[in-house]
Nucleic acid binder design. Sequence first.
RNA 1: GGAGGAAUGGUCGAGUGGUUAAAGGCAGCAGGCUGUAAACCUGCCGACGGUGUCGUCUACGUAGGUUCGAAUCCUACUUCCUCCA
Length: 401
Amino acid sequence: MNLLNWLESRKLIYQKTNESNLSDQLEKKQICAYLGADLTASSLHIGHLLPLRILKILSEHGCKSIFLFGRGTTMIGDPSLRTKERPMLSQEEIYQNMNNIKPQVDKLIKNVIYEDNANWLLNTNLIDFLREVGSKFSVNQMVNLETFKNRIENNNPLSFLEFSYPILQSYDFYHLNKNHGCNLQIGGSDQWGNIINGVHFIKKMTSKETYGITLPLLLKGGKKMGKSVGGAIWLDEKQTSVFDFWQFWRNLPDSDVEDYLLKFTDIPHEEIKDMVKNSINDAKKKIADYLTSWVHGEEKTKNAKEKSISIFENKNMNSLDEFKLDDKQFSNSEIKLTKLLVEIGLSDSASDAKRKIKNNSITVNSELIEKQDAVISKNDFDSEIIVGHGKKKKIKVVLAK
RNA sequence: GGAGGAAUGGUCGAGUGGUUAAAGGCAGCAGGCUGUAAACCUGCCGACGGUGUCGUCUACGUAGGUUCGAAUCCUACUUCCUCCA
């Protein structure tokens, strides 16, 4: 089976350009692929994993791979499929984000070339750019792009700043093509319009053929996996602990497990089907192991897994994270539970803690707390106490010496 | 250039002077049942607060104004839509 067919069989391809030529080039290893990332946050999140996996597969297949930091384009903000303008980030923030993200990519893929589109976008001369590049784009076609459809149909404002985004991304592709011979761009399914524009642009500029692939959206329970609000799972372990990262995959809905194993592992399909059918929980551990190892390494994965098994399967509270509570937090040898919850990180604020207590989700030493003004006295710490939120989050609290 | 309409919380969408922190849906969080799953049932869901069914603050495009009181009325501005030129 050739590479493209294999990718298809793994459901890793959503859309692609010129299939037969692309496949040929892949087999001849004459592909140089690039993946771009916006720098809107200080860490990558799980939504980036699938495109990175493709880049990694291509790289291991012998194709040159480029990871492009969108330091220039992030200053514009990709409007693709969005309903509102993004907030603008300062140059310093964007730069800082790049510095945080680079080590993450380093860990995920070897032999990748880094580029930063600020290097060529920030110093362009406007008139030259419009004459050279802008003249090649048809507004008539651009307004019909899926990318802008949402905005235009719903009458949401779309500024020229954002409208120019596909042009800049196309220019990136052209630039990489010129300097690295890059001829394949990969991206999420929302990138199709941007990618296809780049392919057309390069064709116009150089008559050369280039290719594009988009990936399917990751689903959660049949719905789009939201990376918004409470749901973001970050690759940075300071933002999402390794344990929580492992737990996230361990808790996937049954209906998604086959798809995730197919996309993220090399396990033969038959074997996956078998696992899902006969031991769904082992299958979930498999996917958790696989992805956590990739992102955080074997060692940390092993620890997270052991901890999970110890806590959830063996009910062994000794494995819990320990929080050392400072003496100063007590007044009259007592501490309010709401304050304690905030201290140990189970709540964002006293109000939040109260809400949680009201929801019957807070336990102390496995006893449900019903009173919002509950107080823990110092004597209770003769031994450790275990504070729980829901049935999945528990923290062991001891007095600091 | 002219006439009219619209802008509501993460999102969609009610609400046209006061019991409105603002109906309802979706998303999210939590509890029950389970398998650390789904479905289903229930609760929470602007923020903060030493803890009351109470207080403070913030919020209905932006900035002012009228009023004891405004998401609701007035003025200006911004953006979008429709029609006329």
